[in-house]
Every structure is written in structure tokens, then in C-alpha cells.
Design a protein around this nucleic acid. Structure first.
Lengths: 183, 183
DNA sequence: TTAGGGTGTTTAATATAATTGTCAATCGCC
DNA sequence: GGCGATTGACAATTATATTAAACACCCTAA
């Protein structure tokens, strides 16, 4: 959703400066600068003021924006979304993309020393797999226990009750995949 | 731009509660309540989250919204926009509708006792007229001075230098019209 | 009747957007 | 080159959206 870039393109097409557009829209140049650099997400009211001043309709703006927008493929590390409530010193699950719109859910998981998904085993529809990329992880699946080190992996039917536990002394990182997304 | 009503309509169509939609969109039910009652203008990011969760595209949302939206005709008192910076105990100019898109600018003006548009006379293109609805107003136009009471009015070419002054002891209210809009 | 789960609304606290004022860089234009 | 005007960017403050937690209001079942 690169609103900033789109707005800048249209504004320049019309030969408007940030200050001039701001005056027409009843906003300030600073605000437009921030919006165009995607450093803030404008309120619908603000965006409407801007588009009215150009002028271009909301529908038109978003239709040309959304149609020229290819499905997102690449994600920078800081674009991952934390899907578990981040408690200090707890497991961190960072999800790649928006699982709701895909069949595949990929997580970058970080387990501090001693972290544990808990004694009550997990079960859900689908299959999951993962590779340990740092540290050591004890994985329990349907009664079978294994200790995986960096480079090792797992793959199982998610209906089988499972549990993850970092039994090492260092942080453990795992890259995992799940299909269909479990949450 | 009745985003709230539109959102509520679509949400109910899909049989979603505010809480359920909020959960899917990663927002809170309270936020949705405020948006639906137009008590806040959501950020584009928030609105996108909501529409993604429904799901419906931004373009679709605004196209059906804007096409079904008839030009606004009626304005409640609280929908007037203050067009002069509101200083305490100063003149208040409350504008009917958005003058940018109309040939006619109508103001509901309030002058506290002693208020004055200032010794430097005003001049601008167009014609203006008004009726005093409360209090007493001294109006100067091109050297001619008159004291207008409730029910009295004025009408002149705006290029003639003019000035308004509330010489009474009470608040004075005037309903005025200007064409083309002067600001 | 009461207790419990569902709804939408409201409130004070917090996170975020928008303003204000200023900055350095760029562009003519004598 | 030096000056004024205009540009987009930035930091600190102000205004606003968003949250979290409570509320009141149905329902229905015990």
C-alpha cells in the first residue's frame, strides 16, 4: 500500500508543490512530506482533503493504486508481524506476510533459554515443518522426543500433539512453516 | 463522506459483530464503534485492515460509497466549519458547506460586544449581503455608515472597502452570503 | 428470578498523526 | 558569484486516533 509514492506521483503530474497542495487541502506541507514518505498513515479525512484538492476521487485513487500494485513478494526483516503477544523474555513468533490471504504461514521463531510452548500439547489441522538456525531445541511430537541443533529440522502432521522447548543455554531460533495457517 | 454508515452496512451484510471484525483486523471493538458513528476518521492503514478483514478492496469500498452519495444539501449547526482562527472573545465565522466547490459562500457570523473587523477596510471580488439576526451592528461601506438592528440587512459590491463593528453591548449575529467565495 | 454470553457504547490512558517553526538545498535572476 | 524565493525534510509540540476496561443493554437458559 504505497500511498506516499502514489500521492507524490499524482501531485507532480499536476505540477503542485507540497506547500501549494497543503494550502488547498487545508493541511500543512510537513504533513504531506510525511505522508509521501510513508512515515505516517493519513486519516481518511486528511487523504480525502488532499484528493479533493487535486482533484481526484477516493475510488479513482485506490483503484489505480491497487491495480498497479503487484502482490507483495519480498519482506524486510522489520516488516514481519509479531503474532504472539510479546512478553519480555518470552517466545517471539514473527510471521512472514499476512497468513489470512495465503495457504502458507512462515514464522521466524525466537526462544530464549528455557522457553517452552507449555506442558499442554498443541494440536491443530495441517502440516508443519521447520529448521533450527541457531541454538538447540527439544521437540516432542506424539510422545517422540528429539533434540535438534542448528541445521536440523522437523516435519509432521499438526494434529499430532506437539511441544517445543529450548533446553540449551542460549537463544534458539527456528524458521517454521505451517499449512494451512494455524492462527 | 459517511464512512461509518457504509462500514456498518457492509459489516452487518456479512453478519459480523464489531468484536469479530476487530479481532480479524487487529483492532479493537471500541475503535470500530467510534468509526461507525463517525466520531473519528480512521487512518488509511486502519481502514485498510478492516476492509482486508471483511474482505473488500479500498477501491470497491469508495466507489460504492461515492456513487451512492448525493451532493450534500442539509447541514446541522455542528457541521459548519469555523473559517477564521477562533480567538477567545473574537469574531466567529462559521461557514455553511465547502465554499471551494460552490459559487456561494454563506456564513453564520458571531461578533462579541466590541468586536471589529479592524480599521483596515476589506475589499475583494464579488458581492456580499447579510441580515442581522441578533444584536446591533455598525456597517461601514465606502464611507457610508449605518447601524443595523435585528432584521436589518446589507448588500453591496465587495470591491467597495467595508468594515463591521459590533457597537452594542450584547453579542451580534449575522447571516451573510458572498459570491464568489472570498476565501 | 438470576446468571451468563452476546451485543454496541463510553471513558481515561496511551500511541499516533498533524502542526508549527526551522533547516539546508536548489533554482533562477539580476 | 550573491541574493531572494521556493523546494522538501526534520524536531518538538499539539491535536487526534486507538486502546483497554468498564458500562448498559438485550437475549436465552438454568
Amino acid at each position: 500500500m504505497d500511498i506516499g509514492h502514489k500521492l507524490r506521483t499524482i501531485r507532480k503530474q499536476r505540477g503542485l508543490s507540497q506547500r501549494e497542495l497543503a494550502a488547498r487541502a487545508g493541511l500543512t506541507n510537513g504533513t504531506i512530506s510525511l505522508i509521501e514518505k510513508n512515515r505516517t498513515s493519513p486519516s481518511v479525512a486528511s487523504l480525502k482533503s488532499l484528493l479533493d484538492a487535486i482533484p481526484i476521487s477516493m475510488a479513482e485513487f485506490f483503484s489505480t493504486l491497487e491495480e498497479t500494485e503487484a502482490p507483495k513478494v519480498f519482506y524486510r526483516a522489520d516488516e514481519f508481524t509479531e503474532v504472539a503477544p510479546t512478553r519480555e523474555g518470552q517466545v517471539s513468533l514473527r510471521q512472514l506476510g499476512n497468513a489470512e490471504h495465503h495457504a502458507l504461514q512462515v514464522l521466524h521463531e525466537t526462544y530464549p533459554a528455557g522457553a517452552d510452548t507449555g506442558p499442554e500439547l498443541l494440536t491443530h489441522e495441517g502440516e508443519e515443518a521447520g529448521i533450527v538456525v541457531r541454538g538447540t531445541m527439544e521437540v516432542t511430537v506424539d510422545g517422540n522426543v528429539a533434540v535438534l541443533k542448528s541445521g536440523d529440522g522437523y516435519l509432521f502432521d499438526s494434529r499430532r500433539p506437539h511441544r517445543f522447548r529450548n533446553i540449551g543455554e542460549d537463544v534458539c531460533e527456528v524458521v517454521s512453516a505451517c499449512t494451512p495457517p494455524s492462527f
